[in-house]
Each structure stands twice: as C-alpha cells, then as structure tokens.
C-alpha cells in the first residue's frame, strides 16, 4: 500500500551547505511521525521539501506515492501545513483570515464551520472578530491550527506546532492531533520538544546534521519512553 508521505534518500544542499543528507522514512496513513532535532538539524527543511518549496538536491519526496517535484499542486492539495510562526494576517480577524485562506485553497467554509474549528482549538468567541495583531502568540497559533483543520486534508505537516501554547493548550492540541490521526489523517510534525513528541507521536525520528540518526516507536499501545528518547537526543547532540 502507498504511504501518504515518503522520503527516499532525501538530500538538500542550500548555499553550498548540506542541509539534508540521505534521509529516508515513510509515514503511514493515520500515523503520527515526529522528527526531533536541534536547531539547524534540517527539520523544517524536510517539511518544506514535501510542500515543494525546496527542491531536493538528491533523492525524492513522495506524497501519496507521487513525486512532489512532478506535481507540486497535487502535493499541496493533499497537505495542510502549519508553519512555525503561525503566519497569518494581523490586519484581519480570525474569521477573515480563515475565510481568506480557505477561499484560496478552493474550500470555502461557512461561519458555522469556522466556529466549529475555532471551538476545537478553544479560541475564545469574543476574540474571533478582533484583528490578529491584538492576539497573543498562542491565540495566533490556535487560529492557524483551525485553518489546518478546516482544510480537511489527508495529511498534516506541523512545524513546531505547540510553540507559544500554554501547557493546557498543548495537552488539548495533542489530544486533537491524536483524534485527527485516529480519523485517518497522517501527521508529520517537526519539533525540538522531546516530551511533546513522545506524548503524541507513534514514531519519533532523530535528525542531526541533516541525517536521520535514530528512530523510536511506540510498542503495545504505550507511549514512547521520553527518557530513552531524551537520552538518545542528548547523546546525539553531544556527539
């Protein structure tokens, strides 16, 4: 069966520097795969190659079995992407932002659908008609997550999704991601939050210097052991 996401010997060179070097992995349907790594490990670059924003220097990335380079539009149509900075428009309200981006995606939604998504991310109702420039980082992040939800795509790419969220919101977000995966959505998230990754992911990959240097899976329905991953992470970082 074709994996929704697959990286085959993915290499990426930017401005003469090797950002990714022979990275290979697959993410199965309904699976949550977290890529852990320090700054500059190549986590975000990996996500951007799946979106076609960066062109692999070697190897290839496949979305639903199709090369992204061959059909970028098909790849982007299948993916909802949550960028690290929750980049939305400060001069628009949450409703206006969602309405706008969904229109561009060709998936317009009514106010009820927007409210349902914003309810799921727990964005206060009174804030929804305020411009985003008055939002906290967490509130912006919630709006961006709502956008990803509303896209209803089979694949979610999350770049440091819990950055800026308070602990309660992080737990809620993790529950949400698990629910989405439970519904069949495939999730690839990149983070440097070891604890969060282990809490939510079915599989964790360790990325260092552009190489995938370790992989941990949950067994028997249990979560991945945070301490094991943390130790490996620290060891690899120190190496």
């Amino acid at each position: 069966m074709t994996s929704p996401l697959e990286a085959k010997s993915l290499s990426l060179v930017r401005e003469g520097n090797a950002v990714l070097d022979g990275v290979s992995f697959t993410v199965a349907r309904g699976e949550i795969f977290a890529l852990l790594g320090g700054n500059g490990a190549g986590k975000s670059s990996t996500l951007l190659t799946f979106l076609g924003f960066l062109k692999p220097s070697g190897g290839e990335v496949l979305v639903n079995g199709q090369s992204v380079t061959g059909d970028v539009a098909a790849a982007r149509g299948a993916i909802a992407y949550l960028p690290e900075a929750a980049s939305l428009y400060g001069h628009m309200t949450a409703y206006e932002n969602l309405d706008y981006f969904l229109d561009l995606a060709g998936k317009p939604a009514g106010r009820a659908d927007l409210d349902a998504a914003l309810d799921r991310v727990a964005l206060p109702a009174e804030a929804r008609t305020r411009r985003l420039r008055s939002y906290s980082k967490g509130m912006r992040q919630k709006t961006a997550i709502a956008l990803a939800l509303l896209r209803e795509t089979p694949i979610l790419l999350l770049d440091e999704p819990t950055s800026g969220l308070d602990p309660v919101a992080i737990d809620e977000f993790h529950d949400l991601v698990k629910a989405l995966a439970g519904g069949g959505q495939t999730v690839l998230m990149v983070t440097h939050d070891v604890y969060g990754a282990c809490q939510v992911a079915d599989r964790v990959g360790l990325l260092r210097g552009g190489k995938l240097v370790g992989s941990f899976s949950a067994a028997n329905g249990e979560r991945i052991d945070t301490e094991t991953v943390h130790a490996a992470f620290a060891e690899r970082q120190a190496a």
């Binding site: 924003f53 982007r76 149509g77 993916i79 909802a80 992407y81 960028p83 428009y89 561009l104 060709g106």
Partner: peptide, 14 residues
C-alpha cells in the same frame, strides 16, 4: 517577510 507567502502557496495556490 511575514511568512504568509508559505501559507498561501501551501493552500495550493500557484
């Protein structure tokens, strides 16, 4: 500069 270009293009808009 604001990062919204990535969000827009990620919606599948050429």
């Amino acid at each position: 500069e604001s990062g919204t270009l990535a969000v827009i293009l990620a919606q599948g808009l050429p």
